[in-house]
Simulated assay, not measured.
Amino acid sequence: MSSTEPTTGTVRPYGDTTGDGMVQLSFTLPLPLGPRAEGAALQLARRMGMDRPLLVHSKAVGGTDFSFFVVYGAVTHAVELSEVEVAERDYPLLSAKECDAAIDVRLGRPLVVLGACIGTDAHTVGIDAILNIKGFAGEKGLEYYKKMRVLNLGAQVAVGDLVRRARAERADAVLVSQAVTQRDAHLTNVRELSAELRAEFAEDERPLLVVGGPRFDASTAASLGADRIFGRGTTPGDVASYLVHALASEAAAVPAAVLEGVA
């Protein structure tokens, strides 16, 4: 968190002037486009706390049975910053060379990482950004790390198959990316995977379960049975540093003599 970022006080959305509360809201109603649907859209906006909402766009979608709306107006709500809870990073960020050195000192062997998209999820962009050597946001993926053995199993991997592969490969960590969220499929899949990992492995042998995706809430890791949840904007360095922190608990304190010349 930036040292200049405020942590107390009340904030409202900014549109034309500070604190005017102006927001833009878009949604779809299961009604054919017309005066009744437009009236329903405005009433919904008012009930959501929008003052004097304006209907700025409407369009029929899905044939004639649905309507899409964009509404603009001022919300009456405000947020007290002191009541906002965020998941702070509780481990240091390490370079690739520092991670390799830490793994070498604390584990004395390569750190084994399995990655996959599970269930029906075929969106591999996220898992590839973390694992593939080309990486993301100017950082090399985990395949670049000399002391990590990375296996990217790709898309639509069955939970049972992933658990069996984790056993066969003696995985230290299982990384799962989930982008398909219809009917909370991402939550169901993670809970199922967590349960099967715990059934297959003794607690002191179980690989870390690390989950990523744009619709996850980092604060729900424990309730889903995951060890860590990463959201939008996560880089390979974030994940690598966490794995080193969690799997080699003293890695962040590797003696300076070991790190000398690797930075």
Rank of each mutant, 00 (worst) to 15 (best):
L153P: 04
T181R: 05
E203C: 03
L142W: 03
E139M: 10
L187D: 05
T188E: 15
A137V: 00
L162P: 10
M148Q: 07
V150W: 10
L153Q: 09
K146D: 15
A155N: 06
R149F: 10
V150Y: 10
A171C: 07
L142P: 08
G154Q: 07
H186E: 05
E200M: 11
A185Q: 12
E139N: 08
F201M: 05
V174G: 07
G141Q: 09
R183Q: 14
R198F: 03
D184S: 06
L151D: 08
E196V: 09
R164H: 12
A166V: 08
L142S: 06
V174Y: 03
A179M: 14
E196G: 07
D161S: 14
S177N: 07
D161C: 03
A199L: 12
L187I: 00
A202K: 14
A179Q: 13
V157F: 04
L187H: 09
V159S: 12
Q178H: 10
E169T: 00
Q156L: 00
G138D: 04
L162M: 12
G160N: 13
A168F: 05
V174P: 06
L175E: 02
D184A: 05
Q182E: 12
E192D: 11
G160W: 10
S194A: 15
R164W: 00
R191F: 00
D172F: 04
T188Q: 15
Q182I: 13
E192L: 15
A199H: 13
G154Y: 04
A179I: 11
Y144E: 12
K140G: 06
H186N: 14
L142A: 03
R191H: 00
A195G: 11
A199W: 08
V176S: 01
A158N: 15
V176G: 00
A155Y: 02
E203M: 12
V176E: 01
V159P: 10
R149P: 03
L151T: 15
R206H: 08
L142I: 00
E200C: 09
Q156F: 02
A158F: 05
E196I: 09
R164T: 11
G160V: 09
R164V: 06
R170G: 02
L162R: 02
L151F: 15
L175Q: 01
E205S: 11
G160L: 10
D204K: 15
R167G: 01
V157C: 06
K147C: 09
R149C: 08
A199K: 14
A185L: 10
A166S: 13
E203Y: 05
V150I: 13
G160S: 11
